[in-house]
Write a protein that binds this DNA or RNA. Structure first.
Length: 151
DNA sequence: GCCAACGTTGGC
DNA sequence: GCCAACGTTGGC
């Protein structure tokens, strides 16, 4: 899951009550479907800092509540207001995620790109702009192995 | 700040 | 259903 640290970074998650947040504001159908159809309680996710210097993976979080309507879509005052989302038939959903831990270091995008085991990582697909993407178990392990940099 | 990539919108 | 225009994302 990507987030801009200037908006909501890993330290904001760490400072949240119960170190938990609603992943609100997703207004992309593929990302929505990922949350609604694929994410289940107990699933783990990498927390990625986009639009950051450097961009990269900074932590691990866990799904603690499955998809439910994103109420920010109903709020005319909200930045992500979407009048097409009807409370009786919500268009947008969110999940709750809780911090598991910050990584020992930020794993930069540049290193992810250089890792052969991650050649198929959705995050690295050309022109990718999705804010939520799947990670396979093998990819997960390969990324975690990068947490400790080579001596 | 630039700009490639790509999703969405809306006229037809 | 097509597709041009437009807006957004996000690395650089």
């Amino acid at each position: 899951m990507k987030s801009e640290p200037a908006e909501f970074g890993i330290d904001d998650l760490a400072a949240s009550p119960d170190q938990t947040t609603h992943w609100d504001g997703v207004r992309n159908y593929q990302a929505r479907n990922m949350m609604r159809d694929r994410m289940r309680v107990g699933d783990r996710v990498f927390f990625y800092h986009s639009n950051a210097e450097p961009p990269g993976i900074v932590g691990i979080a866990e799904v603690v509540w499955e998809a439910y309507p994103d109420h920010t879509a109903f709020d005319p005052q909200d930045k992500h207001h979407d009048p097409r989302s009807d409370p009786a038939k919500p268009r947008w959903f969110m999940v709750d995620v809780r911090l598991v831990r910050k990584l020992a270091r930020l794993i930069p995008l540049s290193e992810l790109k250089a890792q052969p085991a991650l050649a198929e990582l959705a995050l690295l697909r050309r022109g990718n702009r999705l804010s939520i993407m799947p990670v396979t178990p093998d990819q997960w392990a390969a990324i975690l192995a990068m947490e400790t940099p080579p001596a």
